[in-house]
């Protein structure tokens, strides 16, 4: 693995981690949601610091180079993350909808009751 790629991996990981910490500090983010990113960045840093791991696994899986392995693993992890995020968004949307509908119906019921009292 080239020094440049290792440097880029470490740099990006550290910047991402710093952004996470800042968001947590500004209380814009639930800690649960940062765990994935912290672990993800940790893996990237590990691979950059100890390229032997990449070389070893790449050899094991018969990849042409450790770089290929890293790219593939990163893409795969991101696709998975994206998929689960879609599932989460869908669930959230459903819950917001249910709440909005309940509020609207309750409000109408309250108005009707007030009207009939008059």
């Amino acid at each position: 693995m080239s020094i440049l790629l290792r440097a880029i991996l470490i740099l990006i990981s550290i910047i991402t981690l710093m952004m996470m910490v800042r968001k947590i500090r500004k209380s814009k983010l639930h800690i649960e949601y940062t765990i994935f990113w912290i672990l993800f960045m940790a893996i990237l840093i590990m691979l950059a610091l100890f390229p032997e791991i990449g070389v070893w696994v790449a050899g094991l899986l018969q990849f042409q180079s450790p770089e290929n392995l890293i790219f593939l693993v990163v893409i795969f992890i991101l696709i998975l993350k994206l998929f689960f995020q879609t599932v989460e968004i869908s669930a959230l949307e459903y819950r917001v909808e249910e709440l909005a509908q309940k509020i609207a119906l309750d409000e109408q019921e309250r108005e009707q009751k007030e009207k009939s009292k008059e």
Binding site: V96, A100, Q101, I103, A104, L105, E107, Q108
Partner: peptide, 25 residues
Amino acid sequence: YNIVDLPINLGLAGAFKTGMKYAYR
């Protein structure tokens, strides 16, 4: 008029479902 005001825009499916919930209620 008899009106149910949704606090946010849900789209036709969400609005219609509100109507069905009203009918069910």
